[in-house]
Amino acid sequence: MYQEGEESMFLKKYGDLAVGIVFTVLAVLIYGMASQLPPNLLGGVGSDFMPKIIAVGMGILGVLQCAEGVRTVRKEAAQEPEEEKPEYLRVLGTVVAFGIYVFTIKPIGFLPCSIVYLFAQMMILAPKEKRNILLFAGISVVFNVAVYYLFRSGLNVMLPTGILG
């Protein structure tokens, strides 16, 4: 809990500077990569033109943002009372669960993956006192089976069958 509070303070203080630095670095990378694109043979401007313009614009804005960020860091951070600490654990859990889901659909198949994922995601998002394992499991199975057959046979969307196929 303590750490979470720390983190949002950090974001408030150094967020602007971090954004500035990330974009400035990104701008340099884009410009560098654009310079290595093959030359243009068709008249007009080449494929490197737009990315370079974007990179230059991003670079200028990035430096401006860095300057703004330095100002934010210097400013004494106003001690606003935290209204509610963000629940980063649930966010992380969601990203991990969804990540595993989208990368396993193809090898394992839509139906098993979706049933497991939907159940897991509801458990992650529901507050502790509202967790109802039977209800969640029921919804996961019924919803996904219905969706699977609706899309596969009704709408010709070829969802991966995976191990069941």
């Binding site: 990203v95 969804f98 989208v102 193809k106 509801m122 998002l125």
Partner: peptide, 30 residues
């Protein structure tokens, strides 16, 4: 919301996949 949003995410994944029939698109929504 904790029931609704996960179900919507599943539908979103299908939608992204079905647009071009590529799993890559479903992964890019992450």
């Amino acid at each position: 919301k904790y029931i609704l949003l996960p179900a919507v995410l599943i539908l979103c994944t299908i939608g992204a996949f079905a647009a071009n029939n590529r799993m890559f698109d479903a992964q890019s929504i992450l």
